[in-house]
């Protein structure tokens, strides 16, 4: 374990000495703030488009960070021959793989925390009450809205009144924070699977550019299409249908871990049981990919 931690420490050190992460963060922040400064119809309460864009950028950046750093790790070690003095020490190849994985994954975690803090600040700076559960807020808008007050507006104004007596407001606030934390957690778990997958790719395909490209296509494909493969399969003729179905059951369903919609649209938090199951699922797949990586790398001849 000590060895694993030492190796992961080096990975993290490399990541923060290289500047990729800062570039992505600044880019995300810049685009978000730029969009945030645009006024749509003089309405300062509009928040969701900003959340949507910000989260999308965060997802893209996190995938870029995870894939590009992980895919480079082992090929770079071999190309720079830094792997030789390292493996000449009493380090097993398994520890080496675990160290690389852990380093990349932890680095992604740190990056995610920074990103989500930024996201929290952005979305809280917009319509504070607005981000609490859907029905609760609205209020202020309803009052300065049209002059005609129908029953709905009354109801909304009533609920606002209620809010000031603290309880619903604080629960709303708590559910928002819980939502963020769940989103962050699931995102991180997903990146664990991604990192392990890319690590496997980088061992199988030794050219980093190839493994980066393939990983990107594969992971984006899973995120966009993964949950629909069963529907796609139904429309195919037989041999193809069976193949797609098998794929559907084999691939890691990363799209589960994408709960952006629930955060953007202020949905109630996910049950902890489901969160735990998803985490377990991610761990199983991460373990599987790490095992495969080790299996391939175990007896690999390490010369140039």
């Amino acid at each position: 374990m000590n060895n694993v931690l030492a190796i992961s420490g080096i990975v993290i050190k490399e990541l923060y000495r290289r500047k990729d992460f800062y570039v992505l963060f600044v880019l995300t922040a810049l685009i978000t703030l730029l969009l945030g400064s645009v006024s749509f119809f003089n309405d300062a309460k509009i928040a969701r488009y900003l959340k949507e864009v910000c989260l999308l950028l965060i997802w893209i950046s996190s995938l870029v960070i995870a894939i590009s750093t992980t895919a480079r790790q082992i090929p770079a070690e071999r190309e720079n021959r830094t792997i030789f003095p390292l493996l000449a020490k009493p380090v097993t190849r398994g520890q080496f793989i675990m160290g690389k994985f852990l380093g990349c994954w932890l680095a992604c975690g740190v990056a995610l925390v920074v990103f989500y803090l930024f996201f929290g600040v952005v979305s809280e700076s917009r319509g504070r009450g607005d981000s609490s559960a859907a029905g609760l807020s609205a209020t202020a808008a309803a009052t300065d809205a049209s002059s005609k007050t129908d029953e709905h507006d009354h109801a909304a104004a009533g609920s606002e009144h209620h809010n000031e007596h603290e309880t619903p407001e604080t629960t709303g606030q708590r559910s928002v924070v819980l939502n963020y934390v769940q989103a962050l957690w699931l995102h991180w778990m997903m990146l664990g699977v991604v990192t392990a997958m890319v690590l496997l790719g980088s061992v199988v395909l030794s050219a980093p550019s190839v493994s980066i490209t393939i990983s990107f296509i594969g992971i984006i494909g899973i995120l966009l299409l993964g949950e629909h493969l069963n529907k796609v399969a139904l429309r195919q003729p037989q041999p193809l249908q069976a193949i797609i179905y098998t794929g559907y059951f084999l691939i890691p369903h990363l799209e589960w871990f994408d709960i952006r919609d629930r955060v953007i649209y202020d949905q109630p938090a996910i049950a902890f049981g489901d969160c735990g199951l998803a985490t377990l699922y991610a761990i199983v797949y991460t373990g599987l990919f790490l095992f495969l990586t080790w299996f391939v790398f175990r007896r690999k001849t390490l010369t140039l």
């Binding site: 000590n2 030492a6 050190k13 720079n80 021959r81 003095p85 390292l86 000449a88």
Partner: peptide, 29 residues
């Protein structure tokens, strides 16, 4: 490999580390 020291033919080490950090890393291992 616990009791051996190895100097590779072509020496490349983690370029972003300082000599001190590099040695500390190996010491830790």
């Amino acid at each position: 490999r616990q009791r051996i020291g190895y100097l590779p033919e072509l020496t490349y080490y983690y370029k972003f580390l300082t000599a001190e950090e590099l040695l500390r890393f190996y010491a830790r291992i």
